[in-house]
Amino acid sequence: MNVAQQIINGLVLGSGYACIALGWTILLGVARLVNFAHGQLYMLGAFVTWFAIAKIGLPYPVAILAAMIVLALLGALMQTAMMRLVMTQNLTSLMIVTLGLGYVLQGGSALLFGGNPQTLPGTLARAKVDLGPLWFTWQDVLVLAVTLALYGVVWLFTQKTRYGSVIRAVAEDPKLAELFGVNARVVYLLVFVFECSAVALGAALVAPRSPILTSMGFNEVIMTFVVVVLGGIGSIGGALLAGLGLGLFTAFFGAFVAPAYTTAAAFALLLALLVIRPAGLATK
């Protein structure tokens, strides 16, 4: 039964990784943009959700929506500020700018929300399910279900609709796409807004599992790196598989080798893979 429980633990961890990584996958893969403030956006999403529940008194589902809206607005603001760099495809500067904005978000949230740890009340993180000797929470079920549904919807949207090819055209060459009558600025703005609200959703779902602090975000962003690169930059199915796979890897590496070294092991795996296949797992 130990193995069965570890599989559950792995799926719980992995669905969390995949859920948080979705926004980045789209941003990086479809629009070829990077956002090193991702971890701090996750933190902010969690704190906005907490604020909405604990301070304003909104029910959990409404609080999730509130967090998504707040972060979408923030994302629109960030992207508008960075638009010139995006249009000139100055990726080096973009990376550093988002790193700096992450610092600003962290400092600002610490001033705004204080340094105390908080827990999110009213979520399903304490609603436990027992299946014989196995256990998980309804929150875990919710995370897994929403993650699978989201990846499905996003996959359909980018692969099966006209909009998906428009976004890819913009990523390929924004200037050329504009010649064909596509407003590249709007496309970039929408993609970035999607990234921010997706991470807010991820935070609202995953963060209730443990106490939240304004100093968090680092672990989440490095796990997102691993998921996105392992899955093959921008491959939606790849990211989902990589997220779940990484969760199972963490659980079994932890159960049979040494849980304290899982981050290092995941990164070593990533380094090794990049040497063999620089474009990630999903490439043929």
Binding site: N2, Q5, Q6, N9, V12, L13, R209, S210, P211, F218, N219, T250, A251, G254, A255, A258, P259, A260, T263
Partner: peptide, 15 residues
Amino acid sequence: KFAFKDTDFRVQLTN
């Protein structure tokens, strides 16, 4: 064992 920054201990607790 676990790392200082960890917040999920299900794997260890299962063992």
